[in-house]
């Protein structure tokens, strides 16, 4: 019923709008009839003939107006539909009836053209920027590789270099995140190989800080993308290393049973309970992040996004002052391609 009431109100509004649009015509007819009436009265003619003529004119005008009103409503509805279909552009915009309508129509079409041009320009700029940043990140890896060789004997310098390398990887992942599905190669990977590969890559961060690393049970394999999962593991390991004081211990193991769940556990400073639900949010640094000026709140955001793209899930458990566990649930959910 509410629907019907709404449509009555809608109808009344349409009629009102129509009358408003035709007020000059109505006023002209009323004025003409008034002038005739005045003249008839002044001449002292009987008003019967005048009344009859009035009735005819008004009836005729009413019938014509009905047709006109129907057209008015049709055009109104057609234009409204275009508003909803604006995404697809403005093809089939109803033709103009007069010069003014034509002007509005041209205005709309011109605006649309400009919008499309601006959009494609923006898209082109974005892809040029993307191409340049990708190029830059590949360029910078060669001098990093050279420095790595030159500084091999210097543990402190190598550790800093490893950080730079990780930042470059992060930036590259950030750029490619939206194209993960293109750069995705799923295969059965032995879990142990994934873990050791990531650990070796971060070894300096642990050795330099004097952290212990323990490997637990790591049997079986998971269907995943080796490169992207290692990126996530490296991020989690370097986070664990960052937030665990010297002498602490980081453990990597898988939980019993299917689906395969990898755990990166540390006995570091832990995360505040109120921060845990926000860990995967972009730019969220939390209490620990505020303490550590190096935190940008990007690492875990990227990890969470990458994991979602891979059809996995990442979650955290933590006890303040006792440590953090990161769970990588490697089951295959439907891949998030959007």
């Amino acid at each position: 019923m509410a629907d019907r009431a709404w449509s009555w109100r809608q109808g009344a509004r349409l009629v009102f709008c129509y009358l408003l649009a035709r007020w000059k015509l109505i006023f002209t007819v009323a004025l003409s009839l008034g002038v005739f009436l005045l003249v008839e009265v002044l001449y002292g003619h009987p008003l019967e003939a005048y009344g009859y003529a009035c009735l005819l004119v008004v009836t005729l005008l009413f019938l014509l107006s009905l047709c006109d009103f129907a057209r008015f409503v049709r055009r109104h509805l057609a234009l409204r539909r275009h508003l909803q279909l604006l995404e697809q552009g403005l093809p089939g915009l109803p033709g103009a009836r007069n010069l003014i309508e034509e002007d509005f129509r041209n205005l709309a079409l011109e605006l649309e053209r400009r919008l499309r041009r601006a959009e494609s320009l923006a898209e082109q700029e974005r892809s040029e920027l993307l191409a340049y940043y990708t190029l830059w990140m590949h360029q910078v890896k060669t001098p990093i590789a050279a420095l790595k060789l030159l500084l091999e004997r210097d543990i402190r310098a190598s550790t800093e270099l490893k950080r730079i390398e990780q930042y470059v990887e992060m930036a590259l992942s950030y750029l490619k995140l939206d194209e993960v599905s293109q750069d995705f190669l799923a295969r059965e990977c032995p879990v142990k190989e994934l873990a050791t590969q990531a650990i070796k890559s971060c070894s300096l961060l642990f050795i330099e800080k004097g952290l212990r690393l323990e490997l637990g049970e790591l049997s079986g394999s998971a269907l995943t993308d080796e490169k992207w999962l290692c990126f996530v593991l490296e991020q989690l390991l370097s986070n664990a290393a960052k937030y665990t004081p010297a002498g602490g211990c980081v453990r990597v193991y898988r939980l019993d049973g299917a689906p395969c769940t990898l755990v990166v556990e540390d006995n570091g400073i832990g995360i505040r309970a109120e921060d845990i639900p926000h860990l995967g949010e972009k730019g969220f640094t939390g209490y620990n992040g505020h303490e550590d000026k190096r935190s940008t709140g990007l690492g875990l955001y990227l990890c969470t996004r990458v994991m979602a793209r891979l059809g996995h899930r990442l979650r955290f458990e933590s006890q303040l002052g006792q440590g953090t566990k990161a769970y990588l649930e490697l089951e295959r959910r439907s891949m998030d391609i959007a």
Partner: peptide, 14 residues
């Protein structure tokens, strides 16, 4: 450096 070499061969010792 020695530890790094050991880690490289998957002996993650402290």
């Amino acid at each position: 450096t020695i530890m790094q070499a050991l880690w490289e061969s998957e002996s993650f010792i402290d």
